[in-house]
Amino acid sequence: MASEVAVTIVTVRDIFQDEAGRKSRFSDEYKNLSALIILDKQDLAQLGAKDGQKLLVKNDVGSVIVAARTSEDDAHPGLAFMYNSPWSNQLVSDDVCDGSIPGNKRIKATLSIAEGNVTQISELQARMQS
């Protein structure tokens, strides 16, 4: 077991999360479908974490606490997925290349077991105003 696991996060879309966001950005439904990270079984095992475990995801840009979800895809250790949302954007660098394309598809971050609860949308809003 490791206290930290390094992953590359790719942001992707999901129809159910999109639907929840269209209904309300401030609902529990949207938070529950957005504040999560989809991980390979091997990465979860390395952390000693289970499905639904709260994880701290952090990098040079920021940090966020989200829930872990076990991937149903073929094995992809070291590769994680998050849905596009204010939670994933906490970790995206805006230090863009010449094409002005941000780094949503290759976010380097580390994971560890979190002490607290999933980061609330109100906290993300407060960070923007700070």
């Binding site: 840009v61 204010p86 954007n89 906490q90 970790l91 805006d94 923007m128 105003q129």
Partner: peptide, 29 residues
């Protein structure tokens, strides 16, 4: 548009610090 939801945190924060004018049918960040 809801750039405070959709854009990288640094960009969203830079926008949030400006006097923003939002034209939108619905509540957003």
């Amino acid at each position: 548009s809801d750039p405070l939801s959709a854009l990288p945190f640094g960009t969203a924060r830079a926008l949030a610090r400006q006097p923003l004018i939002a034209i939108d049918p619905r509540r957003s960040l």
